[in-house]
């Protein structure tokens, strides 16, 4: 009985909300339909047509011959791609830097949000927060300028290390392969921690205060409250943000790597996007087809990440994107 009423209720709701396809309704909202057509055409042109452009990965594409005039080569470009040592290296770099960034930025942003939430003085809290997301609005160009200044032989980092007598001569951080990933992760933390923490702070404020009160009555201390109330309360937000960012793991690696990388560290700095860019810009070895093939690989892997992580989230009963 109960079930049937709720079902019929649901059906009714759907009926109200579901648009009715009638000529009258169509005429009534013709303006919306007309504008939508413009948006669809725009989207087809700028977002869907480039997907059709993927066919040039199966050609030996020459710009002046066009798609119809270029020679078809089947999977040759993909074969070259996966036998190219540089490409494999580039995949490793992209994936590792993306994953490290995702892990550290999530943990540090949550920690920062929790610590900031413990501050009682309103003005102090507000000031720290305002300062914290300022770097988000600076371009990567400026951030890289700052980072390379700080790491230069006369920069603040070497200066501090020498004053503390940890090292005697300036250490060439930017010339060391092993330092490239940590520098990228730390720069990213410097730029984005405050910004990423905004969402977590908002989520913390929406946790029911009763939970804290009852935890206090049960004798929970400050750290126990953080561990058993705040963190579980943040769980849905953390999950959805991880999901959203999972698909971006391969996208995350371009600007800083491109700007900060140099010849000495290129085995650790170059990412898929930089690899593609080289095939697109280098006048001597211009190869649009190869670059497109690499781009296809990146998009397909990203999509797989999203679908798989979404599926896992669904299975585990967590939040999901779609």
């Amino acid at each position: 009985m109960e079930i049937s009423t709720s079902r019929s209720k649901k059906k009714k709701e759907i009926d109200i909300n579901k648009p009715q396809f009638t000529v009258k309704e169509f005429k009534r909202q013709w303006i919306l339909v007309a504008i939508s057509v413009v948006y669809v055409l725009y989207g087809l042109l700028f977002y869907y047509l480039p997907l059709v452009g993927w066919i040039i990965a199966f050609q030996d594409f020459k710009y002046n011959k066009g798609i119809s005039g270029s020679k078809w080569v089947g999977f040759k470009k993909f074969q070259f791609l996966f036998s190219d040592k540089t490409f494999l290296l580039v995949i490793r770099n992209t994936f590792c830097m993306g994953a490290l960034n995702l892990i550290f930025s999530t943990i540090v942003a949550i920690a920062f949000a929790i610590l900031l939430n413990e501050v009682r003085n309103k003005y102090f809290k507000k000031s720290i927060q305002t300062i914290s997301y300022l770097p988000h609005f600076l371009s990567w160009i400026i951030v890289v300028a700052i980072v390379s200044d700080a790491l230069s032989s006369t920069g603040i980092i070497n200066d501090l290390l020498m004053r503390l007598h940890i090292i005697d001569t300036p250490y060439p951080f930017r010339a060391k392969e092993a330092w490239f990933w940590p520098i990228v992760v730390l720069s990213n933390l410097w730029k984005e921690t405050g910004w990423n923490a905004i969402i977590y702070l908002a989520a913390i404020t929406s946790i029911d205060p009763c939970l804290y009160e009852s935890a206090a009555i049960d004798g929970a201390g400050r750290f126990q409250k953080m561990r058993y109330v705040t963190l579980p309360g943040l769980r849905p937000t953390i999950m959805i943000l991880l999901l959203m960012n999972m698909g971006n793991v391969l996208n995350a690696g371009f600007e800083i790597q491109y700007l900060l990388g140099n010849g000495l560290v290129q085995n650790f700095s170059r990412t898929i996007d930089i690899y593609i860019l080289d095939w697109a810009l280098d006048a001597r070895n211009l190869d649009y087809s190869l670059g497109t093939a690499a781009g296809i690989f990146k998009t397909v892997v990203s999509m797989t990440f999203i679908v798989v992580s979404n599926y896992i989230a669904k299975k585990r009963g967590d939040e999901r994107l779609f």
Partner: peptide
């Protein structure tokens, strides 16, 4: 009338991108 269709059409653009080079050629 075409709410869900149009919505899906644009959501797809968030995830599937043609990539740098096809866009450059276009």
């Amino acid at each position: 009338l075409f709410k869900s269709g149009l919505s899906l059409f644009w959501v797809i653009t968030m995830y599937a991108s043609g990539g740098m080079i096809p866009v450059l050629i276009l």
